[in-house]
Design a protein around this nucleic acid. Structure first.
Lengths: 146, 146
DNA sequence: GCCACGTTGAGACTGAGTCTCGACAAACGG
DNA sequence: CCGTTTGTCGAGACTCAGTCTCAACGTGGC
């Protein structure tokens, strides 16, 4: 129940009150290994009787997004999802089978972006890269069943 | 009125009927130089009395997205927008001031993606890169006013 | 105790997108 | 020429995502 939770730490560090609803949402988010949608989060909160209202849920998500410990990603299906992650610039690698996500460093991408900036004449301020594929685990499963 | 429109061509090529509503939506989309939201498209259709219902509008968008001549992008603000573009793999460069968009080739990005795949062990099937910044035009304006 | 402020829950509201259903029109087959 | 099939459309209900307002509450400072 009281396992270390970087999300709560981040809230604390940023000077926000560690209220019960915020702890509850943080715990919920922390328990996801991959991405989750607003609907899923809502349902999970309801199932576990967290007593957290929708407004508070979204407020918490907004807060955490601002702090950088949660990010919104857009799946290939067009759905929105959220992922817990480290508050540093990075990109998301999403397994399209199991939904597991991994953070990847910018390595190589920044260069490519700089090149694009040079060619296009745009001054590029930010970029977002999302990668979709199969994680090791799901690749193995695919090979077995094939 | 009857200027060449690659969107209509794409519909034709794919064997879809070139009905009046579809032509109207295609014309509307073609007239945007940058991105547009569903709401804007709706409003524009209403303003110009195109007589196109919301359902048809979305159906057209879906169709065109499938054909690859329209893509959905996600702005930094979290909004969804659509852009008309060429039906080839590329990325979008969005001016955060004026909304103008440009397509850029994959140049360099594919390599970086391959590298990420190697390191992570994921089999990467697709990726999406979105770039935000200032276009040449808006940079110039900024310099003048500074 | 009182006040200010941060936080919350309830619920209305908006925007995006989907779905269903009934109508219509072009295409097709006889 | 007629009937059927298929594609498309409009209207409107519906769902999900997210925002906003407002009243209530708790905590900490004074």
């Amino acid at each position: 129940m009281d396992e270390p939770n970087p999300i709560i730490d981040a809230l604390d560090l940023a000077g926000y009150q560690l209220t019960a609803p915020r702890r509850a949402v943080a715990g919920l988010i922390h328990s996801y290994g991959g991405h989750f949608t607003a609907l899923e989060l809502e349902a999970a909160a309801r199932d576990r009787r967290l007593g957290v209202s929708r407004a508070t849920l979204f407020r918490a998500l907004e807060l955490l997004t601002e702090l950088g410990v949660v990010e919104r990603i857009d799946l290939t299906t067009g759905e929105h999802a959220y992922v817990a992650c480290a508050p540093a610039h990075h990109h998301h690698l999403v397994c399209s089978r199991c939904g597991r996500t991994a953070d990847v460093e910018d390595s190589g991408v920044a260069e490519a972006v700089a090149q694009i900036a040079r060619r296009s004449g745009y001054r590029i301020d930010s970029h977002r890269l999302e990668l979709f594929g199969l994680c090791r685990h799901c690749q193995a499963k695919t090979n077995l069943s094939a």
